[in-house]
């Protein structure tokens, strides 16, 4: 999977490394901005009130 991505990135090794880094950052950003805020309320740490059941 990762090998396939690496082989299909353009340019030489340096360019590939740079693009990989940007891809990783983009994925982390999407996770922190959209995916985790959605998943976090499914965890039990949020229930601190007595009437929201």
């Amino acid at each position: 999977m990762y090998g396939w991505i690496w082989r299909n990135l353009p340019g030489n090794a340096w360019v590939k490394a740079l693009i990989s880094l940007l891809l990783i950052l983009a994925v982390v950003y999407i996770l922190f901005q959209y995916v985790f805020p959605w998943a976090e309320p499914l965890m039990p740490f949020n229930d601190v009130t007595v009437d929201n059941q």
Binding site: V28, L31, F32, F36, A39, E40, M43, F45
Partner: peptide
């Protein structure tokens, strides 16, 4: 990453 998000972020 999720643990980092919950505990820290």
């Amino acid at each position: 990453l999720f643990v980092v998000y919950v505990l820290f972020w």
